[in-house]
Simulated scan of single mutants.
Amino acid sequence: MVKEETCRELALSFPETNEAPHFEKPSFRVAKKIFATLNLKENRICVKLSEIDQDVFSAFDKDVIHPVPNKWGKMGWTLVDLGKVRKDMLADILTMAYCEVAPKRLADLVNKPDNSNDI
């Protein structure tokens, strides 16, 4: 289970991200583009994923992660149940959502390859 404060912290941890209202829900944006919206009443977050990432994450457990059940879902918008998702998985999901909409220069800052095995 991920609490609202933790979800918000994770979403705002990416470069040049800000929070702004989107109708009655908090949204998280980069370069004026929404990558996630938080639905406090339903204890879930909606994220923008690529079709491939949406398929991969949804394969984990459709009770936890699944496409929005309409044409928005076909465009990558995906619902995540904050009461059931693990924090590490949500961090990965938010990273992919951020990189999906962020300018390449910002996405590259987040998607740096791990060079820890380099000698």
Rank of each mutant, 00 (worst) to 15 (best):
W72N: 06
I119K: 11
I52M: 06
N18Y: 15
P21R: 14
L82H: 05
V2W: 06
R86I: 08
K48D: 05
L38G: 07
D55F: 08
S27N: 07
D61Y: 00
L40T: 14
S13G: 15
N117F: 14
M1H: 13
L10F: 09
L82K: 03
K74I: 08
A20K: 15
V47N: 07
T95R: 15
N39I: 00
D92S: 10
E16C: 13
P103C: 06
L82V: 00
P67F: 01
L12I: 09
V64G: 03
A102F: 05
D53H: 07
L109A: 06
A107C: 05
W77L: 01
E16I: 10
R86P: 03
I45A: 09
I93S: 03
H66G: 05
K32H: 11
K74C: 07
A20I: 12
R44M: 14
A107G: 07
A97E: 00
M96A: 15
E5T: 12
T37M: 12
L38E: 14
D88C: 01
K25S: 13
I93Y: 03
V47H: 09
L49Q: 04
T37S: 10
K62A: 13
K104F: 06
T37K: 11
V64E: 02
L106F: 04
P26L: 15
A11R: 08
V30R: 03
S58K: 02
K84T: 02
E9W: 12
R105D: 11
N39W: 04
K3E: 14
S27E: 08
D63K: 13
I45G: 07
A102M: 09
V85F: 02
N111G: 03
E16G: 12
T37Y: 06
D61A: 04
M75T: 07
H22C: 11
F28R: 09
S13M: 08
W77R: 04
T37W: 07
D108I: 02
P67H: 01
I45H: 11
K33Q: 11
V47L: 13
N39F: 04
V101I: 11
N117S: 14
S58T: 09
